[in-house]
Nucleic acid binder design. Structure first.
Lengths: 239, 239
DNA sequence: CGGCTTCCGTGACTTAGGTCACGGAAGCGT
DNA sequence: ACGCTTCCGTGACCTAAGTCACGGAAGCCG
């Protein structure tokens, strides 16, 4: 009832910072307080690995900023992106690893510098039993990703590369509520994303440029005709 | 404290029947009692659809016997199997649909006559809040399938058809603890499984036969050389 | 038995896309 | 300015696998 002690003030600050994230807003005051007290914030630089295939997890993490890419790495060295984890989201592999204590079956690498809220696995497990809102968050995470993965299987199995690439580009341009008109990426990067070879991406991009959907320059792609790109993504256009 | 009433006796029988399933064995007595009381058993004939893409779910189900196949159906009519659900298992799509109230993104069809324990969605949601053991079961379900789906993405993206087919065959022969030496299936069925065309399967199977791994007859495949098949599945052999 | 349906085998052809082998362009560091 | 590294463009080539178009075999049923 008097002035808050130092620890409480730090916790209050953390709490403020967290108030823009749905998973935190949904939490009851009691859980919010516990999170602010028990969680710490870590920073991970771009290029760092958050998870490697076969790892186990001692901590649960929610991203506050930045982006991680979760991908499968084949023996051949080829990669394919499974999904990206952004601000406010948790990685389902991390959760599944903590809750079912099995090694993770893929890699997770930081693509854009990450700040993450981390909680010891044991604490997380306890809270899962006590807090409906946390469970809901986790289930949403699982459900969303499982659905995405199913669509991905279909896409890889049945769609042509040009469609897949067009869609991927379109998604990138729309990304995170900030419709861009230009994006910095390399053909090799897109190739790893889609699980194909750089040459294939280069050729298709050139074709897209020829058709007037985009323009290319070193390390950068600019959007020229969004509608056309969308058509290509759904297979209406092309030839 | 006197003789059990009829309902209780029926419930006791149900309880007996359920005692071979891990998810039930793990449950505390209190939950076991509730399940025996609130759950009903339904039968679904082979060929029936348990879920169609876009459905919502009013019930949670656990299979007691039989098998369901969950698959994606492309507009082109092509199919690819995502996974199978067998005795003692729940379908994660069913769960995710109930817990996050979103339409299911795939089809689930009964392949071998199914008996299933079903529970109203609302009841299931309540129990999820109250019972650790149920939560654990559900998380296992999610974690297992998510992992499987990731491997499937990798397989579809990077493996050749001959390897995928060899592996699929090998899995079928090993299936459910009863190592078979012969299996009744058609080439078309295997093709839908793998998301390819029947002709492709026929050709590859013929090749496998030529190499002495299997022998073919109408609607049936017999295993001749399990080791060879395994080699093919991992890409060691082949020519 | 004769007809129908389901399955299977196969040749011929097409094509997406993976692989190789370059060379050249763009940017960076010193 | 020079060299080094990263990226990109491109032609040539190869091959897995999808598609088409059959015909024939196997089983089923009246």
């Amino acid at each position: 009832m008097s002035h808050p002690v130092t620890g409480d003030r730090a916790a209050d600050q953390k709490r403020q910072a967290l108030l823009k994230f749905p998973f935190f807003i949904q939490a009851p005051p009691e859980l919010q307080r516990q999170i602010a007290l028990a969680a710490s914030v870590v920073r991970l630089e771009s290029g760092a690995y958050f998870l490697r295939e076969g790892d186990s997890c001692a901590h649960f993490a929610v991203l506050l900023s930045g982006r991680m890419r979760v991908f499968k790495l084949a023996e051949s060295g080829q990669e394919i992106t499974l999904y990206n984890v952004g601000a406010g989201e948790a990685c389902p592999l991390n959760v599944s690893c903590i809750l079912s204590d099995r090694p993770v079956p893929a890699m997770a690498r930081v693509e854009e510098d990450v700040e993450a809220l981390v909680i010891p696995a044991e604490t997380f497990r306890r809270w899962m039993g006590e807090h409906e809102s946390l469970r809901t968050f986790v289930f949403q995470t699982f459900a969303t990703r499982l659905t995405e993965m199913m669509s991905l299987v279909e896409e890889v199995a049945f769609r042509r590369m040009d469609q897949r690439l067009a869609r991927r580009l379109h998604d990138i341009f729309q990304e995170s509520g900030t419709p861009r008109t230009s994006v910095e990426t390399t053909h090799a990067e897109l190739a790893s994303d889609l699980g194909t070879a750089r040459e294939v991406v280069s050729r298709l991009l050139k074709e897209f440029e020829r058709l007037g959907a985009i323009t290319l320059s070193r390390g950068k792609i600019e959007l020229k005709n969004s509608a056309l790109l969308r058509e290509m993504a759904s297979g209406i256009a092309e030839k």
